[in-house]
């Protein structure tokens, strides 16, 4: 999948979402926000308005697959699961995130 340049920030949300789904299996949108928030010890908070566009975009790209299901509170929710293509994307994103943070850290150390 070709990516456009202005997706850097979106790229972060992709990474976080894909990672969450990879670790926790199928999740609905609200659970994804909760997972990210808790997983980052409240350091990161997903902007809720941009989560769903991101999920739909990723679904169109074929990285995640959405299915309607029922929660324990017996509410209808759409559960998202990571696909094989999504895993490949996750690997790439992790790698480039690693490079980015590595680069930023080096600059900060030597600046």
């Amino acid at each position: 999948m070709a990516r456009s340049k202005n997706d850097v920030l979106q790229g972060t949300i992709d990474l976080l979402v894909l990672r969450s789904l990879d670790v926790r299996g199928a999740l609905h949108g609200y659970a994804i926000t909760q997972h990210i928030q808790r997983g980052s010890a409240d350091l990161l908070r997903v902007e809720e308005g941009s989560l769903y566009p991101a999920l739909h975009r990723m679904e169109q790209a074929g990285w995640v697959r959405g299915r309607w299901g029922t929660t324990e509170k017996n509410r209808q929710a759409r559960f998202y699961a990571i696909t094989a293509a999504g895993r490949r994307q996750l690997e790439q994103e992790q790698e480039s995130w690693g490079r980015l943070t590595d680069g930023v850290n080096r600059v900060l150390r030597f600046a």
Binding site: G29, Y30, E48, Y52, Q60, R75, Q76, A77, R78
Partner: peptide, 23 residues
């Protein structure tokens, strides 16, 4: 999507409604 545009719009509405009620 163009072939099922209404279901897409409905999907999103339902998803957001779910999200709001959970929150």
């Amino acid at each position: 999507n163009t072939l099922r545009p209404r279901s897409l719009a409905r999907d999103l509405d339902r998803e957001v409604a779910f999200h709001l009620s959970e929150r």
